[in-house]
Amino acid sequence: MRLAGVSVVYTETGLDSPGARVAALRDVSVRVARGEKLGVVGANGAGKSTLLRVMAGVVKPDAGQVDDGGLSCAFLSLQAGFDNELSGERNIVMHGMLTGLTRKEAQARIPAVAEMSGLGDALARRVSTYSTGMRGRLCFSTAIDLDPEVLLLDEIFSVGDIEFREKSERIMLERFQGDKAVVFVSHNLKMMERVCGRVIWLDNGRVRAAGAARDLIAQYRKASSQTADGA
């Protein structure tokens, strides 16, 4: 997957500054190789989620080119597009149907998702009754069970307990071997260092640096602590 010179500008519709244009990404070029585990770091509002949305084809850029290489992508964030009024099971079925499965095929996935998420009987309850951690479990398990070629994860491991994080990290590493790629946005830098080979650092919509995970995370940590000290 390759992004070349991608820029995305949003127009504000809110109460305070309607019509204001906000550049979420500015001239960003990124290449994700087959089988690569790429991390994305940056402060809040740096453009990380927008970058994943562009990679997933959800948001089309205002400038630049995106070549997804015809690979199937699954974009995962805690919003996840779940219907809060429906049960976890119904949401699993609907998610599967949106990706092209028949209703029967989608229903057949429920036991696997139940096992992977550890949600058990809670899957029969409405999603509105779930904690954020439970949503994270449902979201990750639903998407990973579909076996996409590129997995785009947006802060999915910022919630949930240690057991789930360890389990999902293990599953992710097991399943995403070989040609399958993962792009991983997180503030959990330790996990990113373990999972990713390469990391890019987004700052105010631009790629500030890119490099080997260990070096870049050290650089990012240093800069973040300096900013915090300065503040």
């Binding site: 959800v58 919003q79 597009g81």
Partner: peptide, 9 residues
């Protein structure tokens, strides 16, 4: 919004 920001549909 929730689903449009998540999937290409």
């Amino acid at each position: 919004r929730a689903i449009v920001s998540q999937m290409r549909l």
